[in-house]
Computed example of a mutant assay.
Amino acid sequence: MYKSSLLVLCCFLPWITPSVGQSVCGNDQYNPALSMCCNEVVQPKSGFQPSCCGTRGYDARLSICCANNIQPRSGIQPSCCGAIGYDAAFSMCCSGTIQPRSGIQPSCCGRIGYDAAFRKCCDDRLC
């Protein structure tokens, strides 16, 4: 009985106390110099700016995380519209729809983009 208790303690001790230089992610140990913990899933670090998108790893200098969906980072102002990436310098997100940014005062009226300098929005409709 003593040997089996010692065996159980021996086998579970590494999960309770990480080794020197190790961290715990969920039920796994990992080396934080080489890997990262993304929502309790160990992922390898890669790229210039390793980041997590849900349970997946990605390079935040090349991609953007939109609603746990990795999208290419492009344009002057990379942004998200729901799970889709877009450039906020030239477009805008209107209730989940990407619309072109144009006019003096680009604004949204519901899902429609418009120029607020020349039109009005009344209850999500242009009036």
Rank of each mutant, 00 (worst) to 15 (best):
S63Y: 15
G21T: 04
Q43S: 02
C127R: 04
G82S: 02
C25P: 02
M1Y: 07
A33M: 10
P50H: 01
S46L: 11
P44V: 02
Y58W: 13
C53M: 09
G75T: 04
K45Q: 06
S19R: 07
L62D: 08
L13Q: 03
A117E: 14
C38G: 10
P72K: 00
Y58D: 02
T97M: 07
S23R: 07
V8R: 04
C38E: 07
A60S: 15
C94R: 08
V42Q: 02
N69G: 01
C80N: 07
C122R: 15
F118D: 05
N27Y: 11
P44H: 06
D115F: 03
N68K: 14
L7C: 08
F12T: 14
S4C: 02
C94A: 08
F12A: 09
R61W: 14
A117Y: 10
G113R: 03
A67T: 13
S91I: 05
C38M: 00
S5K: 10
C121F: 00
P14K: 00
L9W: 06
Y30W: 05
G57M: 05
S79C: 00
C122W: 11
V41T: 15
W15T: 10
Q71F: 03
Q77S: 14
D59F: 04
C109P: 12
R56V: 13
N39T: 07
S35E: 15
I98C: 01
G26W: 07
E40V: 09
G96A: 06
Q77M: 12
I84M: 12
Q49H: 15
P44Y: 02
Q29E: 13
G113W: 04
Q49S: 15
I76M: 12
C122E: 13
R119Q: 15
Y30G: 11
Q29D: 12
Q22D: 12
P106C: 02
I64D: 01
R101C: 03
C127D: 07
S74F: 09
G110F: 08
P50T: 07
Y114C: 13
G75Y: 01
A83G: 14
K120L: 10
F118A: 03
L34Q: 15
G54C: 12
I64Q: 04
G85R: 00
L34A: 13
P14D: 01
S107R: 10
Y86M: 00
A88F: 08
Q43I: 01
G21D: 03
P100D: 08
P18C: 02
C108N: 03
A89K: 12
C122A: 11
S23D: 06
A89E: 09
F12Y: 09
A60Y: 03
Q71I: 05
N31Q: 11
W15Q: 11
Q105S: 11
Q71H: 02
N68A: 09
A67M: 13
S35V: 04
S95I: 12
C65M: 14
Q29A: 12
L7N: 07
S107Q: 09
S63F: 14
R73W: 00
F48S: 15
C81R: 02
D28S: 12
D59T: 08
L9A: 11
I104R: 05
S19M: 05
E40I: 09
Y86S: 00
R56L: 13
C66G: 06
L7F: 09
S63L: 08
L6G: 09
P72L: 02
